Computed example of a mutant assay.
Amino acid sequence: MTKTNRSNCPILRATNAMGDQWSILILREFFLEGPRRFQDLQDTLALSPNTLSNRLKKLESSGIIARRTYSTNPPRAEYVLTETGHALRPVMRALHEWGEAHTPDLE
């Protein structure tokens, strides 16, 4: 990578799409559990509704997840990984393996 192309490097673009630690932990839930409802994610991750909503919107606008309505009365929706989101499986697996090999258990 040269100095001139760092402002548009693939790593920068990927981290812009995926977001921060919370976004990666949200993605973990999709890979472990499949489609998830807002409340399921909130219960599992103990995130504030505003933070979770913002991260889901970011992942949705990046094309990583999609919001799917499954009931109209009352309105209910769930989030699912898109094809682009599923393509992150090797990245998530690599993060898991690296964390398992190189980080201590949390107390």
Rank of each mutant, 00 (worst) to 15 (best):
K57Y: 04
K58W: 15
K58L: 15
K58E: 15
L59Q: 15
L59N: 06
L59F: 11
L59A: 03
S61I: 11
S61N: 11
S61H: 05
S62D: 05
I64E: 10
I65D: 14
A66Y: 11
A66K: 13
A66P: 05
A66C: 14
A66F: 04
R67Q: 10
R67P: 13
R67I: 10
R67D: 09
R67W: 02
R67E: 12
R68V: 11
R68F: 13
R68S: 04
R68M: 04
T69Y: 13
T69N: 12
T69Q: 09
T69M: 11
T69A: 10
Y70K: 05
Y70H: 08
T72Y: 06
T72S: 11
T72A: 12
N73H: 08
P75H: 13
P75C: 06
P75Y: 08
P75L: 02
R76I: 04
R76N: 03
R76K: 10
A77H: 09
E78A: 09
E78Y: 10
E78D: 01
Y79E: 04
Y79K: 01
V80L: 09
T82N: 03
E83R: 05
G85H: 02
G85S: 10
G85C: 12
H86V: 02
H86M: 15
H86Q: 02
A87L: 08
A87Y: 01
A87S: 12
L88Q: 00
R89M: 03
R89L: 14
R89I: 15
P90D: 00
P90K: 15
P90Q: 15
P90A: 14
V91F: 13
V91M: 10
V91A: 04
M92K: 07
M92I: 07
M92D: 01
M92A: 13
R93A: 15
R93T: 15
R93P: 03
R93S: 10
A94D: 10
A94Q: 12
L95I: 10
L95G: 12
H96M: 09
H96Y: 09
H96D: 08
H96I: 10
H96K: 12
